[in-house]
Write a protein that binds this DNA or RNA. Sequence first.
DNA 1: CGTCTTTGACCGGCGC
DNA 2: GCGCCGGTCAAAGACG
Length: 135
Amino acid sequence: MVSGAAPPPPPESGAGSSSGVGREETKGKGSARGRGSRKASRPRFAFQTKSENDVLDDGYRWRKYGQKAVKNSAFPRSYYRCTHHTCNVKKQVQRLAKDTSIVVTTYEGVHNHPCEKLMEALNPILRQLQFLSQL
DNA sequence: CGTCTTTGACCGGCGC
DNA sequence: GCGCCGGTCAAAGACG
């Protein structure tokens, strides 16, 4: 966008249906939400980590996408996803209401790419990890 | 410049 | 049949 040509602003020709949900025109997100294709079994592991940091650099980059409040917990739940393309791993982090210093990290899926960080760095962390349940 | 974060809104499934 | 919940995506903004 270096050129100077100032492109005209998006003409809001449509009647001002500003209010209303009118999210974006042809975005039909909900329609083709191909969510059924990938039904590969996804191992779900829940871990209890004691850390003030929600996102522990376990060797992978996580991109936060969405935050929703849960009834069980007076705190909002955070959803993370691996920024890798071949990595369909999802991470779910929730803070315990009893111990705000404890976070429940739920990993879904497995990584398909080599980790950039030394796993030894997680060794000490894994030690603190507490194997909770396996679905 | 690139990357990441945050918020809002929407949809699907399920229960009663 | 309807309502509710949880879950996901998109865009914009901010920062290094």
